[in-house]
Design a protein around this nucleic acid. Structure first.
Lengths: 350, 350
DNA sequence: TTGAAAGCGCTAACAA
DNA sequence: TTGTTAGCGCTTTCAA
C-alpha cells in the first residue's frame, strides 16, 4: 500500500500529484506524460488527450525545479534582480521594464533591496546563486564585485545597472551622469548665472561623484573659477539638503542658481527656497525627474533619466548572454534629457 | 574517465562543483559534506574545517532546488508576490515591507505585475506554482479566485492584499476603504460643505466601489440628498479625471468640495483646479497619500493608507501559515489616517 | 509512437 | 562521528 491509499489523509487533498499519478490514471508511461507536458512531438493525439484529461482531473502541475535538475543546460527560467530598494520609484521603473522583457520569455524575477549595504549585496547574490538563477541584474554597491568572478567565469549571465562594477569585466547599463550634469550647468550659465552651487549625495556613491564632476567641469569650460563654487555633499535625505540649502542661501554672497544631484536633495532645496520665499528668484535644476514636478510653483526643471530604457537594455543584454552571446562585455550609456519647466529658466536678479 | 577530466573544457572553469566534488577533495563521504553545508550537528570540528576548506577552494554552493526535492516538507524558501505593478509606489511600499519580513527568514521573493489583467493573474500564479513557491501574496483582480482552491486545499499559504478574494476563503489584508472615504466626507461636511462631488476610478475595482459607498453613505447620514450628488466614475488616468473635474466645476451649480478616490484622479483634479484658478476656493480631499502633497499650493489633504503596515501584516500571516497555523482565514483591516494640509480645510465660498 | 532504466544533486533513513 | 543506500520528480538515453 502506498501513501495514496492512506484513508486518514486522502492524497487528493494534501499531496501534490506527480507525473507518476498522471501516468497511472491515463494508463501510459511516465515519459509520455513528460512529452505531453513539455509539448514534445511524438505523441499521438489520442494519447495526448488522455494525458491532458488525467492531468487536469488531478490538477497536476509540472515541477520546474525537478525538471531542470536533469535537463541539459539546467535552466530554471528565473533570474535575480538586486535594486537599491524595491520601494524606490526609479528602481520600480527599471524593474517593470525588465519584467516585461523577461516574462515574455517565461522567466520569473526574484527581486531584492540592497539599501546601500555591501554585505547585503554579497548575501543576496549568494542566496540567488543557491537558487540557481539563470542570470543576475544588479546595482553594485560593494567596493568591488570581484567576488562574483567565479560565477561569471562559469558563464552566469550578469548585467550591472545604474553603476559600473569594479574588479570585474561585465556588461553594464548606466545613465550618462556626467553629461547630464554638464548640461544642467550649461543651461544655467546660458541664462546668465555665474554664481552656481552644487548640492549632492554621499561621495561614496559613484553616480553622485560623476554628476559633480560633470557639473564642475562644465563650469570650468565656461571660465568660472571652480575653486569658489560652493559644493555641499554627503546629503542623503531631504532634511539635510534643506538645511544645507538654507545655509547657503543665507550666506553673504548666495548663489543665484542651484544644481541638486538627486530627488531627495532636490526636494530639500525646494523646501528651502519656499521657506526663504525665493522660489522665483533662485534657479534650480534637479537631476532625475519626479511626479508632479510640473505642478510645482514654478515647475521644476530636471535632467530626466530613462529608467525604462535602462531596464529594457539590461534585459536585452541578459537574454543575449543567456542565448549564448560571448562577445566582449560592454557598457551601455543611456542619455539624459533636459526638461524645462520654469525653475531652471529663472535669470539671476539684477 | 568522467567529464571532469575532459581537457577541452576544464571543469574548474565551466562546470559547477557538486557535493561529490567537495567530498572527494576533502576525503569524506557526501553525507558529511551535506551535514556541514546545512550546519547539522554530529561533525567533528576537524572534519568540518576540512570540508569548509574544500568547499571554498572549489567555490562550491549548495543547490537549494535539488535539496528541497528530497527534504521533508519540500520547502523552496521562496514565495510569489503579485502586485498591480512593481512600478507603482503603493505596491513598492508593500513589496518592501514584505521583503524585510521574509528576507529575515531566508525567503526570496518572486515579484510580478498584473496590470489589472485577470488572465495574467492566472498565468502568473501558475508560473509561481510550477516553481513550487512556499506561499503566495497577491492582489486579486480576476472575477473569482476559486481557481486556486485546489492549491489552497493542499495547504499552500496564501494571503490576499488590498482587495478581498472572491470564491475562496483565505486570509486577506485590506485598507479600510469605506471608513476612510466616510471620514473624508465628514471632514468636508464639518467645514460647511453641502455641495460635494465624488470622482472615482473604474467601478470594476472593488476598492473604488468601497470608497464610493463610504463617501455616499456618510453624506446620507448627514442628511444630504445623495441622489443629487455628482458622481463621476470610470476615471483611470489623470487626463480623464482632469476633464471630468473641469466639466463639473464649469457646470451651473458647481460643487464646493471634491473627493477623489485615488492618486491619478487627485492629480487630475489638482490640474483642473489650477487651470480654473480655484485651487484656494474649492476644497479637495484625496484618497491615498503621495510625495510632495505638502508642497502643493495649498497642501493636499489626504486619506493616507499604510502600505508598509499592509505588507508587514501580510508577511506575518504568510509566515504563520507556513509555520503551520491552521486557524480560520481572517480579513485584517488596516485603518486609514486623515492628514490635513490645507485643501481639505477650505470652507465654501459665501 | 511508446516506455524502461539511469541519473541530475541533494537529503532521509539507517547502518557501521 | 561517519558513510551507504535509496529516492525526491523529473529528463535523458536508448531500446522496443
Amino acid at each position: 500500500m502506498t501513501t495514496m491509499s492512506n484513508r486518514y489523509q486522502p492524497e487528493t487533498t494534501k499531496n501534490r500529484p506527480t507525473m507518476r499519478h498522471v501516468a497511472a490514471l491515463a494508463g501510459v508511461g511516465i515519459k509520455t506524460v513528460s512529452r505531453v507536458m513539455n509539448d514534445e512531438p511524438g505523441v499521438s493525439e489520442a494519447t495526448r488527450q488522455r494525458v491532458l484529461g488525467a492531468s487536469q482531473q488531478l490538477n497536476y502541475q509540472l515541477d520546474m525545479a525537478a525538471g531542470s535538475l536533469r535537463r541539459a543546460g539546467r535552466q530554471t527560467l528565473s533570474i535575480g534582480l538586486l535594486l537599491p530598494s524595491v520601494s524606490n520609484p526609479f528602481s520600480g521603473e527599471i524593474h517593470r521594464a525588465l519584467e516585461d522583457a523577461l516574462t515574455a520569455r517565461g522567466i520569473a524575477v526574484f527581486a531584492a533591496s540592497l539599501d546601500d549595504d555591501p554585505e547585503r549585496e554579497k548575501a543576496l547574490v549568494a542566496a540567488f546563486l543557491g537558487r540557481r538563477v539563470d542570470g543576475l541584474v544588479l546595482t553594485p554597491i560593494a567596493k568591488s564585485q570581484s567576488y562574483v568572478i567565479p560565477e561569471h567565469s562559469r558563464d552566469l549571465p550578469m548585467v550591472f545597472i545604474d553603476r559600473e562594477p569594479v574588479g570585474i569585466e561585465a556588461d553594464a547599463v548606466v545613465t550618462d551622469n556626467a553629461v547630464g550634469a554638464a548640461r544642467a550647468a550649461a543651461h544655467l550659465i546660458a541664462r546668465g548665472h555665474t554664481k552656481l552651487a552644487y548640492l549632492g549625495d554621499r561621495t561614496d556613491i559613484q553616480t553622485a561623484r560623476e554628476r559633480r564632476r560633470g557639473f564642475i567641469e562644465e563650469l570650468g569650460r565656461a571660465g568660472i573659477p571652480t575653486s569658489v563654487v560652493p559644493v555641499r555633499e554627503g546629503l542623503h535625505d531631504e532634511e539635510s539638503a534643506r538645511k544645507a540649502a538654507v545655509e547657503l542661501l543665507s550666506s553673504e554672497d548666495p548663489p543665484t542658481a542651484i544644481f541638486s544631484s538627486q530627488n531627495l536633495v532636490t526636494f530639500g532645496v525646494m523646501r528651502a527656497l519656499k521657506e526663504l520665499g525665493v522660489s522665483r528668484k533662485v534657479a534650480l535644476v534637479g537631476f532625475d525627474d519626479f511626479t508632479l514636478a510640473d505642478m510645482m510653483d514654478p515647475g521644476i526643471t530636471v535632467i530626466a533619466q530613462h529608467p525604462e530604457r535602462i531596464g529594457k537594455l539590461a534585459a536585452g543584454r541578459l537574454l543575449a548572454r543567456i542565448d549564448g552571446d560571448y562577445s566582449a562585455p560592454t557598457t551601455y550609456v543611456v542619455p539624459t534629457e533636459l526638461i524645462e519647466r520654469g525653475s531652471g529658466e529663472l535669470r539671476p536678479a539684477r
